[in-house]
Design a protein around this nucleic acid. Structure first.
Lengths: 191, 191, 191, 191
DNA sequence: TATGAATGAGGATTCATTCAT
DNA sequence: AATGAATGAATCCTCATTCAT
């Protein structure tokens, strides 16, 4: 049932299906057939809209990253107190879809591929740099520069480590505990 | 040229080649052809010694884990001071081949597959539990139980997070910095 | 923007695009997408006007043959001297678009398909028969019948061989040399 | 039934099947499935031995050209009289498998592809140059150089044109008539 | 023990064609 | 009349696995 202006809808549909399938089957086992079936469309349409499997995968990772970024901006908006801003950054990484079971699995999948796929690697690096820069910026208002930088690295590593652990343990991730762990570490760094 | 007693040698050869190839190409891109070429043998031999690709993969992960365990025991041997023991555990995770560029890449690859392959999942869980248990055991001698458990989790997450980051950044991992980061965090937890 | 009386225009547009694309990409590599893009229209329209890819291909070959026939009639018109008529036939085959780089490539493409596509085969045979009959008719005025028939065959073969060579060599075909070669051969046959 | 040293046999088998299938189905319609079925093997083996469809196609054309070259050398061997040598060259082009129905069809197919496939183009050009050079060399012993060169071109064009015609007409090619036509033309050029 | 030949299932991709708008 | 969305069949290719030698 061909309609006009389906492009953005289908693209979004396919990206969502891709993330779901990656989370469910892992990166090495996904096929365009799986994805298209999950999206309720034919396999050929993926090439129509994305040009190929790799491009779809890249678009999916980009979408996840975009969501994270949007969530961070949103939570940061209107806050000026450094501690509040720190909390906002951490929360953005452990809330909503980001920390859902599906999202962490997809994260893990993309991480595992990034070293071998330049396009994914770029995205991963940009994202890592952004997280660290966000943390660093806030921490500089609370700590001396050298300290701030070290603390930013430590927090970023904790955040990634928790995502990883969550993906590996399965089930619904315990966002609350995760947040507490990072925040308590942050507090310790600030005193 | 059939020789007697080749089994353990060949098995070791193939496992080493597997880890090397995984580190170099990632998990989704390896083939038995790659592995056997890297090992300098024919493709068929893999089935002779391991029964199939999956079994070889499992053996490779088991081998990595075995190495880590051996290294930990070795460093722990003869030490009774809790702080020294803590340091030994951390060092075992960031030293020698374990933290080499190849090993972290292989780790990441196995992590990404574990949720979808029961055999790998078991290994991953056993390993994670052992690390936490090791840390917990030591920390209980320095902190109240609840605190100790929380601290063990935090340190384990940091260790995994650093491996992940190291795999993603490429190049030779900075084991020194990694160790420092974890140890300084540990110190903070103990005071 | 639907317009009335577009049919002949669109058909011509598509046929021209088809010939251009065949010349540029060869027969095995053309797609309706290529052709429609070259014609600046959508892919679906081809089926609207021609019913399918094969029919369009047939129409394109028919168009080339039609041009050749028109050119021959034109040059033959008003000439009664046998030698002049012979020259006219030859010239028609090596002049204008017929012998252009594009046309010879298209010819070659159709030749290569003809044995496997009845519709194209018919066209090819009709054309070959017409050339031979034209030549034979003229030559009979200059030579005994048996000789004439043999000479007609030789000239037809030379003409086809030159088209082939020209298609294979690429670049702008040297129509002048081609004409000279055939005409000098013709002269030799007549003396 | 895997055996050792099958490589050359299988390669030859597959090349023969390729030529047969091209002759039977044309270039645009052949698939690796057709070829492998004709050779009585599986489709995968083509990639094992040739790396891919294109490489097999190239090998097939190379094989045809190699045969022609061998046949020419063979017929030329031990002949020193220019007219005899000329006859030998022509005969090599119209005899045996070369002029069989299958071979001319395959020739036509390769011709049609050459302009779009560099590897085939190279082969085609080398072959054309060799034919012309062979003819030229002989004719220089019978005619002044300029004449000889022109005559070589004319004979080469006739030979190609006859192959083309033969492919288009189908059935068993009339090698006898072809040879007569070229030879009579040659005689005329020499007097 | 070890190899290389061979297979066949499965995957990505291409593409002519159909059809609602 | 014309488009672009959508399909599904067909094609090339990959690869784990099997097996005779």
């Amino acid at each position: 049932m061909p309609k006009l202006g389906m492009a953005p809808i289908r693209r979004q549909q396919l990206i969502a299906a891709t993330i779901a399938v990656i989370a469910e089957q892992g990166f090495s086992n996904i096929t365009v057939a799986h994805i298209s079936r999950a999206a309720g469309v034919s396999a050929g349409i993926i090439h129509h809209y994305f040009g190929g499997k790799n491009e779809l995968l890249e678009a999916a990772m980009r979408s996840i990253l975009h969501d994270l970024r949007a969530r961070t901006s949103e939570r940061l908006a209107g806050k000026s107190d450094p501690r509040e801003r720190l909390r906002a950054i951490i929360d953005a990484n452990f809330a909503g879809s980001q920390f859902s079971a599906m999202a962490v699995r997809a994260w893990l999948a993309f991480w595992s591929q990034a070293p071998y796929v330049p396009a994914l690697d770029r995205l991963q690096r940009v994202n890592a740099a952004r997280l660290r820069s966000n943390l660093c910026h806030v921490l500089k208002q609370l700590l001396p520069e050298t300290e701030a930088r070290r603390a930013a690295t430590a927090l970023a590593v904790l955040i990634d480590g928790l995502s990883l652990r969550s993906a590996l343990e399965g089930g619904v991730p315990d966002a609350e505990t995760a947040r507490t762990l990072v925040l308590s570490h942050a507090e310790r760094l600030l005193t």
